[in-house]
Amino acid sequence: MNDIRFTIDGKECLGKPGQTIVEAAKANGVYIPVLCHFEGLKPVGSCRICTVRVGGRFMAACTQPLIEGMAVENTAPDLEDMRKSLIEMLFVEGNHLCPSCEKSGNCELQALAYRYQLMAPRFPYLWPRRDIDASAPLLMLDGNRCIQCLRCVRACRAKDGRKVFAAVDRSHRVKIEVDKKLAAHLSEDQARRAMDICPVGAILRKETGFAVPIGRRKFDRAPIGSDVEKGTGR
């Protein structure tokens, strides 16, 4: 099939049919920030950080397929401010205390906050009461840090296909729950994967931590997005 021609902030790009804006941008060395998106998982457009503007309309670049000739706005100041607002919203709706978090330095929310130079959020902190569930043998789930990206819900399944994680309740009370029976039989690999796929410190492997010291972690070495912008991203 023919390549699709499109532009991002005026830059001429080529993409493949069926690609989303995020995927095609990455292939063209353009970084569009994402948080809920994870390569290989069906995109769900939950965090909205990847919001771009096409023809005056806002859309999530992770779920929107490429269309021939589309002119994508990615770094307009008002768009970037919207993204910063959304990051701030995620910080104030949960309880994110970076200095004491095992994920610090590997946390994508924290990394984006640095990228967007978040100092103090424009929104008031909501200080919600959230639970910690440490009942599973290998994992603990800290609701304080969960950002509802649904990566774990999509990625983690038992051998028979049943979902290990699921969203319960709705509105601002919505939370991710781990299935107690299925969690009891998770393998070491499955538990690792669940922790690694979580962009924040909401899912942690129990009884181990800080194997890599803070200061030498992923985003301590290179800021988020820099791999794509330098063309070293896959």
Binding site: V44, G45, S46, C47, R48, I49, L86, M89, L90, V92, E93, F123, P124, L126, I147, Q148, A167, D169, R170, S171, H172, R173, V174
Partner: peptide, 13 residues
């Protein structure tokens, strides 16, 4: 429904 950030958190704010 609580799915996306702006609707879930934004409306509360």
């Amino acid at each position: 429904c609580g799915w996306c950030t702006p609707c879930r958190a934004g409306n509360v704010l």
